[in-house]
Structure formats: structure tokens, C-alpha cells
Amino acid sequence: MTSCHIAEEHIQKVAIFGGTHGNELTGVFLVKHWLENGAEIQRTGLEVKPFITNPRAVKKCTRYIDCDLNRIFDLENLGKKMSEDLPYEVRRAQEINHLFGPKDSEDSYDIIFDLHNTTSNMGCTLILEDSRNNFLIQMFHYIKTSLAPLPCYVYLIEHPSLKYATTRSIAKYPVGIEVGPQPQGVLRADILDQMRKMIKHALDFIHHFNEGKEFPPCAIEVYKIIEKVDYPRDENGEIAAIIHPNLQDQDWKPLHPGDPMFLTLDGKTIPLGGDCTVYPVFVNEAAYYEKKEAFAKTTKLTLNAKSIRCCLH
């Protein structure tokens, strides 16, 4: 018999989150649709729960009410004593943790798909938090293969000092899905179709896995975050240069030392320094102006996964 890495157990509980950011409308629209008619997301033997994560922000069509829901799922915020004085999103995070967690427990949901849009030209993107997770690498390989020839990129946010504390991190297997470009507060049919297909293929993978299909060893190309880059700023902290036209919409493309990065209003080009080629992502993302992030630098690498098969009882 072929030796293989056996994944822990079959997958039982899956959640699909929309509206973690209330103005990213593809996930909101799909989740609302699936709450009314969820036939397309159901798979035999699998509990799939669509869920609106930040209903107040969705109602106002804004990213958040008090603070970013997708950055506060750490033990400090989840452990705060519940009171009306807490920011709305912290209270909501505790409610979500109660419903789908608790985080880092045996009772937490197996998989959470968190649906997002970006204003950046990132196409279909899967966000991975753990480079050693054979199950998710296999799932992402399946999704990428199923979507081809449509490109699907994998963004690895594993980093020693950049801690995200994402909404989906309460699950055993957290999956971020990011599709763009799409303006905030807008629905685009092409973007919706791409996100819908990503979810379909992900659920198909889980179904095949649960039925005992063995997935042979595989490898995927990923883009691992190195650092986030702020806009150049003046002495008052105001933005002093904008994304250069040569960099705009060039997510995932190589940016070499000396290539144009920013452009000042008086026409001066600010190039990339250093001696390493990087791959920019979230270029000129609207939501990241407040976070002082013009783009993120990534490096390209390959992740390998062992063969996996479900432990059938």
C-alpha cells in the first residue's frame, strides 16, 4: 500500500463567511444568496454554514464600524470581559468565536472560507496562513488546477512579526479568498463568478477527501510576504508620492531593483532599492491607505505537500 500522510479526520463542519468587511460585496451577495438557497454549497455528509460576519458594517456598506474585524481574533480580544464599552467588532468577534470556535479547541469548525474583495488587480487569490499544512496545500492545488487556465495565486502570510489574527483563524483550516479588482461597494459579475467557482472547487475537494480519495504528493507556487511598504510621506505625515503608473495593476509581476515604484507630484520617480527582485501584491489597495500600506513585497517559492487521505471509520 502506498505510504501517505493521513489527515486527522474527515471534514464535518464548514463555514463560509461574507461581510467580514461590509463594503466587499461579492461575499456579502453570495452568502445572502446561499442563506436563501444553499443547494449549490451542500455536499453529502458535510455541514456547510453561510454566515454574515459583520452585519452592521454590511448594512452601512462600510469596511467596519469601530475597528477591523479581520485583525482582532487574538486571545487578548477574544478574552476581554464582555461589555457595551467594547468596540462593536470586538464584541462581534467574541460572538463569532462562540459560534464557530472556540479558537484553538477541538470544537472549532474544521474549515472557514472568508470571502473578500480587493481594489487591487490580484485576480483569484487564496490566502494561506501555514506553509506546513498538507491538507490546505492539497486543497489549493486542486482549486488552482480546477480553475486553469484562469490564474489563481496563493498568498502566504506566515511571518515572524506580522500577526494578522484573522476572522477565519478560529477554524482548524483557515482559508482566505480574495478576488479583484473590484471597487468597494460595487458588485461585478465576473468577480462574483470567479469567487463562486473557487468555493465550488473547494467544496468538491472536501467531498472527494471525505469519500476516501487519496491525493498524491503535489507542489504549489506561493508568494510569501516579506514586508509592507508605506507611501513616501512629508514631515507632516502626508502622502508625498503615489503608486507609479508602471507599478499600478502589476500585482504578482516581478519588481526589480531600480524599477519605478512611486511618483511625486513634481514628476520624480522613486525606484525600488535593494538588490532583490520582489513580487508586489495589494498594490494601491483602497482599504490600506489608513493602514499606511502602499503594497506588500513578496518572494516566490514552492511548497510541497505529502499525499493525504481521509481516515475512514
Rank of each mutant, 00 (worst) to 15 (best):
V28Y: 15
T2K: 09
D230I: 14
K253Q: 10
L136Y: 01
L86I: 13
T62H: 15
P55Q: 10
I72C: 10
T44A: 14
R71H: 08
I6C: 12
L303K: 02
I137L: 08
F215Y: 15
A286C: 12
G176Y: 10
Y155I: 08
L46G: 02
C311S: 08
E9H: 07
M195S: 12
L301G: 06
Y289E: 13
K197G: 11
P254D: 06
L99C: 09
Y289K: 15
P181W: 01
R92G: 07
T167Q: 14
Y279I: 05
L46Q: 02
A286Q: 12
M82W: 13
E214L: 09
D107W: 13
L126Q: 00
A171T: 07
P245H: 05
R233A: 09
E95M: 10
S83V: 10
E227H: 06
P257E: 04
G185A: 07
N304E: 12
C152K: 00
D230C: 12
I72M: 14
H208E: 06
K200Q: 08
A296W: 12
I170K: 09
R132L: 09
G258P: 07
T166F: 14
R43Y: 06
K59E: 15
D114L: 04
L147H: 04
V14T: 04
N236H: 15
E178D: 09
T298P: 00
I112L: 13
L115K: 02
H5W: 10
S3Q: 12
S131N: 06
T269C: 08
A286H: 07
R92E: 07
K60D: 15
K49L: 14
V229P: 01
F262S: 01
V14L: 04
I270V: 14
T264N: 06
V48A: 06
D68L: 03
A7F: 13
I199V: 08
K80D: 12
L203Q: 00
K253C: 08
N97R: 09
D251E: 06
H10W: 10
K253D: 04
Y173G: 05
L35N: 08
E211F: 13
P257T: 04
F262R: 01
L301I: 09
R91F: 12
T166Y: 11
I65S: 07
D259R: 04
Y288T: 14
L150T: 13
L247M: 06
T26S: 09
K268A: 06
S3A: 12
P151L: 05
E214K: 10
P254H: 04
H207G: 07
L263C: 11
G185E: 03
P280F: 02
G19E: 01
S108P: 13
G123Y: 04
C276T: 13
Q12M: 11
L75T: 11
A286K: 13
E40T: 02
K32M: 08
I239R: 09
C152A: 10
C310I: 09
Y173Q: 14
K49F: 06
T299C: 15
I206C: 12
D259W: 04
H207V: 13
V31S: 03
D68S: 05
Q12E: 11
L150D: 14
G237M: 05
E95A: 14
K59S: 14
Q138F: 02
N246Y: 08
H159Q: 09
R92M: 14
V90S: 10
G267D: 07
I270L: 07
L192I: 15
L115S: 03
C310N: 08
K13Y: 04
G38H: 09
Q42C: 09
P55I: 09
V14D: 02
G237P: 00
G38S: 13
R132C: 10
A305Y: 02
G185S: 09
L312S: 15
M198R: 02
A240H: 09
A171I: 04
D234F: 15
N121E: 03
T53G: 13
K163Q: 15
L99K: 07
D190Y: 02
G45P: 05
H208T: 08
P87D: 15
I112Y: 02
K200G: 12
I177E: 00
A219H: 07
L263W: 08
G185K: 05
G18F: 04
E89W: 04
K80P: 09
D266P: 04
G38D: 10
I112N: 00
E290F: 08
V179E: 01
D234E: 11
D110Y: 00
L150R: 11
N134E: 06
D234Q: 08
L150W: 13
V58P: 05
P160Y: 12
N37K: 14
R43F: 04
E36W: 06
L203I: 08
V48F: 01
M261W: 01
R71V: 09
A93W: 13
S83N: 08
G180M: 02
C124K: 02
D66G: 07
N133W: 03
N210M: 06
M82A: 13
L312V: 15
L75K: 08
V278E: 03
V186R: 02
F73Y: 11
S146F: 10
K49M: 15
C311G: 13
V281C: 12
D190S: 10
G123V: 02
P160W: 09
P181V: 02
Y153V: 04
D66W: 07
R309T: 10
N133T: 04
K306T: 09
G274E: 08
Y289V: 12
T269Y: 05
E76M: 08
R91I: 08
V283H: 02
D230P: 15
H116W: 01
P280M: 02
K268R: 14
I41S: 02
I127N: 04
P55H: 15
I220P: 01
P245L: 02
I72T: 07
